[in-house]
Design a protein around this nucleic acid. Structure first.
Length: 647
RNA sequence: GCUGAUGUAGCUCAGGGGUAGAGCACUUCCUUGGUAAGGAAGAGGUCAUGGGUUCAAUUCCCAUCAUCAGCUCCA
């Protein structure tokens, strides 16, 4: 007998060789029906694998990441089996589970391709195979046998994977007529997979390397119940309704024109208003933190960027230098604001008493992003950073860093951003040539970031090799409507630019010292931030940010004159107000203005005109009763005050 | 940049080798209505652009441009 310990520390005895599924059954049949995988002493296993000694276990169901992982990974194998059946000779790359489903990378052979139209055929085959209830069986085999299996099968990708594996044993999983190299774990059998939807086809480079062959990647998702698939698809549809590209058009916030150029957003009046409100808000906060606004031009001599190192690093991938009638003179559209700010710093001598200097600018920069990367407002070729550069002494780095985290916290709180991840990006210790600057400075900067984050109680993930080429950084990442991750706020330490621009200050010791620079942008860029804001709010901006806050809707044209009076009154009270004086019935006006997501709708008619009031309707929340004009104005200003006071 | 898909009215979309259609929006008229679509009429399109095939191309083919999904990249 062996002792099995459960997460609640209870212990039960079982026969040696008991499986996860048997353990689940011994607890309850319903558990046995739901369990998908098991962890044995911290390692995730198949439910059908024999446990040979005392162990701590945890059973995983659909609600556990580990359970879903086994489910989707098994689904990937099932898809591979279906693909081999439909496309004999297909070569397989990798087929993992991902956050929302699974994929498999395949090589159909030269000149062959599949399209979306082929997906249902593959789906059907998968359903058919799933119904055969084929067990997923695991087999540990020696490396030579694994290699000879795939050599015989003629699958170069698997051979490459096996060759690179350093583990002593290699495991194969089989179900039906399909065998794959795999670490597992998998479901007990294919019948668990009840609902399958293949979502899309895309190219993907073998092993993620642009220089390698591009394989065909098929994305899919699967569920243990048909109903769950249906719910998932509905959820996807609803998420698409929040897409900032769709809402940006509907709410008339921004647009693009091919005649202006790819990735160059045109801000429409309402979008410009929103952006202006955000900028003013940040300016105000930054003023409290001792920032000073500066303004610099959109271009700079090429030499400026040669000095900063940006030209060497990114020159080839940028908008190319602008020539002038002057022979040999070249300017760059600025891809970064920092070199200009360094020159401002250099414009006069500084004392240690002046530091830190905090120089802020809403600086528009231009980068020639790859065409396939452009994406609505989140990835564009011309964008405005809410940039600032802090020039400080080495002993001030941590404190300055903490203050920037405070600003970011304040902004995220003001806008109700809760679902963000803070990521510390350090350099790749195995590839130090990628970066510029001394080991010593890198170490100092990296530890300052880590300490500052710890001190603010910020939960962070650490990514090696994700640092900028000039220094480590702390980024704030958020997800968009369909789960894609974007970087918003960023704080970066830089020892490099002060060196390159020979920035100095006079110390208390009457010696010259080099300041440290911190780059920081709480929004990241106005474009990306507005995009994410649109998706998080579904276009229902908080009252203080709404481009139009109130719309007045007369019951009939007879009350348009009173409408104009109300309009003047509210506009004079600094409330952004519109008058809907169209010849339409009130139901129509309500519908149209609700769809425009204007926060407050005012209905006025005979009664309101008579007593100088308005009938108030809150967007999405219906009739709120009537108020006098004065009451309404102070009601609105109170709500804005409350929203901004919380900030 | 790469793979695949898409491009028809301001918007959302249907259609299809014989020079185009709906709904919404827009204009005019009727209506003057109390909390999510009142009625009628009208106007609006080189069917993304450039080539090719054809008696004839918006439709088929090729290229370009743009958009979408993913990969790679992201100072």
């Amino acid at each position: 007998m062996i002792k099995i310990t459960f997460p609640d520390q209870s212990v039960r005895e079982y026969q040696e060789g008991v499986t996860g599924l048997e353990i689940a059954k011994s607890i309850s049949n319903s558990l046995a029906n739901e369990v998908l995988s098991i962890s044995v002493d911290g390692e995730t296993w198949d439910l059908t694998r024999a446990i040979l000694g005392n162990a701590s276990v945890k059973l995983y169901k659909w609600d556990d990441e580990e359970g879903k992982h086994a489910f989707w990974h098994s689904s990937a194998h099932l898809m591979a089996e279906a693909l081999e059946a439909i496309y004999p000779g297909v070569k397989l790359g990798i087929g993992p589970s991902i956050e929302n489903g699974f994929y498999y990378d395949i090589d159909l052979g030269d000149g062959k391709s599949i399209s979306d139209a082929d997906l249902p055929k593959i789906e059907n085959k998968m359903v058919e195979l799933a119904r055969t209830k084929s067990p997923y069986s695991r087999r540990d085999i020696p490396k030579e046998e694994a290699l000879s299996y795939f050599t015989q099968k003629g699958d170069p990708y698997k051979i490459e994977l096996i060759t690179d594996l350093t583990d002593g044993t290699i495991s194969f999983y089989s179900q039906g007529n399909f065998t794959d190299l795999c670490r597992g774990p998998h479901l007990p059998d294919t019948s668990y997979i009840k609902a399958i939807k293949l979502l899309s086809i895309a190219g993907a480079y073998w092993r993620g390397n642009e220089k390698n062959k591009q394989l065909t990647r098929i994305y899919g998702v699967s569920f243990p119940k048909q109903k769950m698939l249906e719910e998932y698809l509905v959820m996807l549809e609803q998420a698409k309704l929040r897409d900032h590209r769709k809402l940006g058009k509907e709410l008339e916030l921004f647009t693009f024109s091919p005649r202006v150029g790819q990735g160059l957003p045109l801000w429409l009046p309402k979008g410009a208003k929103l952006r202006e409100l955000l900028e003013n808000f940040l300016k105000k906060v930054q003023k409290e933190y001792g920032y000073e606004q500066v303004i610099t031009p959109h271009i700079g001599q090429k030499e400026l960027y040669v000095t900063s190192g940006h030209y060497e690093k990114y020159g080839k991938d940028s908008f190319q230098p602008i020539k002038t009638p002057q022979d040999g003179e070249e300017f760059l559209l600025k891809p970064m604001n920092c070199p200009h700010h360094c020159e401002i710093y250099r414009s006069k001598p500084h004392s240690y008493k002046d530091l830190p200097i905090r120089m802020a600018e809403f600086g528009t920069v231009y980068r020639y992003e790859q065409s396939g990367e452009l994406h609505g407002l989140t990835r564009v070729r011309g964008f405005t950073q809410d940039d600032a550069h802090l020039f400080c002494r080495a002993d001030q780095i941590k404190e300055e860093f903490i203050k920037v985290i405070d600003i970011i916290f304040r902004i995220f709180k003001a806008l109700d951003f809760k679902d963000y991840v803070a990521q510390i990006s350090l350099r790749d210790p195995n590839n130090k040539e990628k970066y510029i600057g001394s080991d010593e400075n890198w170490d100092k900067a990296e530890s300052a970031i880590i300490e500052a984050a710890q001190e603010k109680g910020l939960k962070t993930t650490v990514e090696l090799g994700e640092a900028a080429f000039y220094g480590p950084k702390l980024d704030f990442m958020v997800k968009d409507a369909i789960g894609r991750k974007w970087q918003l706020g960023t704080i970066q330490v830089d020892y490099n630019l002060p060196e390159r621009f020979e920035l100095e200050y006079m110390g208390a010791d009457n010696q010259k010292h080099r300041p440290v620079m911190i780059h920081r942008a709480p929004f990241g860029s106005m474009e990306r931030f507005v995009a994410v804001l649109i998706e998080h709010t579904a276009g229902k901006f908080p009252l203080w940010l709404a481009p139009d806050q109130v719309v007045i809707m007369p019951i009939s044209e007879k009350f348009n004159d009173y409408g104009k009076k109300v309009l003047n009154f509210l506009n004079n009270s600094d409330i952004r107000t519109l008058l809907d004086d169209r010849n339409e019935k009130i139901g129509k006006k309500i519908r149209d203005n609700e769809l425009k997501k204007i926060p407050y709708l005012l209905i006025i008619g005979e009664k309101e005109e008579a007593d100088g009031s308005v009938s108030v309707r809150k967007q999405g929340d219906g009739d709120k009763g009537s108020m006098s004009l004065e009451e309404f104005a102070s009601f609105i200003n109170n709500e804005i005050g409350t929203q901004l006071k919380e900030i």
